[in-house]
Design a protein around this nucleic acid. Structure first.
Lengths: 335, 335
DNA sequence: TTGTAGGCGTTATCAC
DNA sequence: GTGATAACGCCTACAA
């Protein structure tokens, strides 16, 4: 591998001159710069990130935490969209992305240690158990971090606006004449709590009565749970006119039970999903769902993290809400 | 940050002794080792990967190339499963994963340069334009690489067995009594060519006649193309009894047209997908499809790459076929 | 405008 | 069994 010294020798100048020339320092005359840069290209010089970061304490590398909790992890389109967007935006700013695990070996027994070991300038936490002490340790350290869909005190977070999501859904259903609205929610997480609270609050504002039997608990991204929940809802003596599912995928479970009973969507029962994955658009009838803006979430995460890294003094942590929008498909009937 | 020197001072030994003790060298007495390790833990020592790799020329870090060609990229479940599996296996062997782009800046104008810049020990090429000169340069360099679903001369590749996939599908359809089989294939790639060749070959072996009108071209993962292809096939004076789709997602496009015509699957028309994504299992009727073993593909990619890195002399490049299996759903009618 | 020298944290060689 | 020392490639005062 060609190094600065080789270029220096070839050009008959010193190493530091080469270093300065390549970093476009204006201490170096433009002719010399040109000559050196040409020679560097000719020799196929490639900098050595390790040496550079050893010296500068900066790596231009971001850590990425992506814990596959639900076993759907990366397979969940919401997250893969976010990840892709983080990657794109980071690359645009000259940062690379390295996955950070908490694999146990001498120097990487925690996320924080792992990130430090790799010299990450900051870490994006996309999906993780936010109550894991390891994650908390990381977030509370002096390592710049950004979390997605979870908020810590005094830390920057990028949040998909779950309250607004449920509010919009409920208000739309209200407009469409629905008063008997069931909500199948995901497992108990902060996201779920926000959605649930917003659901109740909006119903209350609209004077919609929500019987306890209309609230069912399922798990995100596992259609089977929603299948059973749907069954229970449809068996009710006074069944709902519309069911809100935890996510678009889970709706597929509900759909099965609805078809089992030869009910037609939306004529016999209306349904609403959440996420707005690709599938929701290609299903027929097209699914009415709240589209989360994964691209923007990922983009903001990168932007804010890099901002924090590059202006450590002046940066003030913030909570950024990313709103989505209601995709009005054809699964809600006008009553 | 605590460094070796701090531990050395604290223990009253030299830096090199600490270094050796922490790497469990048997030059050091076990008491001293124990003492040093304890002190290191106590002080919260974390090694510095940059310094280490500067010295050792090894980074324990793998590059990952994942080009979002089709704009579905990471959103394509097949790839996200592979990626996740690569990650898992790499972590198990103590390697990290860094995304490698070909963003243009002074020292990273190509994939190869980027990988060298980051000191990657090797690179997994998951999804990319395999005819891109940049990719070819990388593969032909002395950087260890593994490609997925594409084979270069004398390079290790992990291949999902597309020939076997189509052969199994066609033979199954034959058993089920089908003789009029249409095949909607994806855009012209090596994968597509293999599938197509295998389709023709198997039909020939079984003496199934394939009229040209039964072969339609679409694009992977874009249901709309398959929607139109399906329309054309069903409009044929002598339509097929079964349609093979480019992938499970594309089938959704076909499904729409089939439902538009009030045809029932499988009674009026049989269908087969490809990939075996989660969706295929939750659809009703459950989709008959060829399940690609993404987990194994990813796992083998990591294993082989690491093998190559750790035994550069003795390693012989190989082509590893990963077979899947036919998921017999309920979308093919027995004729 | 250019060059010299020191050091970032680690490992490896060699001497003791 | 332990320690001194050099070197990995780069950057940056500071000197010239």
């Amino acid at each position: 591998m060609i190094k600065l010294k080789d270029i220096a020798t070839a050009c008959g100048v010193s190493v530091s001159t080469v270093s300065k020339a390549l970093s476009d320092s204006d201490e170096i005359s433009s002719e010399k710069k040109k000559e050196i840069i040409e020679k560097a290209n000719e020799l196929g010089y490639i900098a050595n990130a390790s040496a550079r970061s050893l010296k500068t304490k900066r790596s231009q590398n971001l850590g990425l935490i992506f814990v596959d909790n639900t076993n759907s992890g990366l397979g969940h389109e919401y997250f893969s969209v976010i990840l892709n967007s983080i990657k794109q935006e980071a690359e645009n700013s000259g940062y690379d992305l390295t996955f950070i695990s908490n694999k146990i070996d001498f120097s990487k027994k925690s996320y924080l240690n792992h990130a430090k070991y790799r010299g990450c300038d900051g870490v994006v936490i996309v999906s993780a158990d936010f109550h894991d002490p390891n994650i908390i340790e990381l977030v509370e350290s002096d390592m710049p971090t950004v979390t997605i869909d979870y908020e810590y005190n005094n830390r920057t977070s990028i949040i998909s606006d779950n309250r607004k999501g449920l509010e919009e859904i409920v208000r739309y259903l209200y407009e469409m004449g629905h008063r008997k609205i069931a909500f199948i929610h995901g497992e108990d997480t902060d996201v779920t709590r926000q959605r649930l609270a917003s659901f109740y609050k909006t119903c209350e504002e609209l004077k919609i009565v929500v019987p306890n039997e209309y609230i069912k608990s399922a798990e995100y991204h596992i259609p089977e749970y929603s299948f059973y929940a749907t069954k229970e809802l449809l068996d009710l003596p006074n069944p709902p006119t519309c069911i809100i599912y935890p996510d678009d995928y889970s709706y597929m479970g509900g759909l099965e039970e609805i078809e089992n009973r030869d009910l037609k969507i939306p004529d016999d029962i209306s349904v609403v999903g959440y996420d707005g994955i690709y599938l929701s658009r290609i299903l027929r009838p097209m699914l009415t769902t709240y589209v989360q803006d994964g691209i923007n979430l990922g983009k903001m995460a990168s932007i804010k993290l890099i901002e924090m890294i590059e202006n450590p003094k002046s940066y003030i942590s913030e909570r950024i809400m990313v709103t989505g929008y209601l995709q009005k498909g054809n699964t809600v009937k006008k009553l």
